[in-house]
Simulated scan of single mutants.
Amino acid sequence: MAQLLEAAASVFCTTGYTAASTNAIAREAGVSPGTLYQFFPNKEAIAIELGDRLMHEMRTTYGEALGPVAPATTLEDAVGAAVDRFVDFNCEHPVFFALMHGPDIPGRIAEEHDALHLTLVSRVEGLLSAFLPDAPAAGITRTAQVCLGIYKAGLELILAHEGAERAAYVQELKNVLFRYVEPLAEGRALATDALATRP
Rank of each mutant, 00 (worst) to 15 (best):
A82L: 08
I105Q: 05
H93I: 03
D104G: 06
F86S: 09
E92H: 15
V87H: 01
L116W: 08
V95Q: 11
L127T: 13
V121N: 09
F96E: 01
A78W: 01
H101F: 15
A78D: 00
D77I: 01
A135D: 05
L127F: 11
I105F: 10
L99F: 00
D104M: 06
D88K: 00
G126A: 07
F97H: 15
H93P: 10
A78Q: 06
V87W: 05
H93C: 03
V87P: 06
A82P: 08
A130E: 00
V87Y: 05
V87K: 00
A115F: 01
A98Y: 05
A115W: 00
G102C: 09
E76N: 07
A78P: 07
A82C: 04
M100T: 01
L132H: 09
V87A: 08
L75W: 09
H93F: 09
D104S: 12
F89T: 09
D134E: 14
E112Y: 13
D134M: 12
L75R: 02
A137M: 12
D134Q: 14
A81L: 02
S129N: 07
G107N: 08
F96N: 11
S129W: 06
A137T: 14
L128A: 14
F97A: 14
A135Q: 07
M100R: 05
E92K: 14
M100Y: 05
L132I: 07
E125S: 09
V83A: 02
I109E: 09
L132V: 09
R85T: 10
P133H: 11
L75D: 05
E125L: 11
V124N: 00
F131W: 12
D84G: 08
V95L: 00
H117D: 10
P106S: 03
F86A: 10
E111N: 13
E111Q: 14
D104F: 05
H93Q: 06
C91H: 13
V121M: 04
V95W: 07
L118Q: 13
R123T: 10
P133N: 13
A82F: 06
F96W: 15
L118F: 02
E125P: 01
V79K: 00
S129H: 06
H113A: 11
A81G: 00
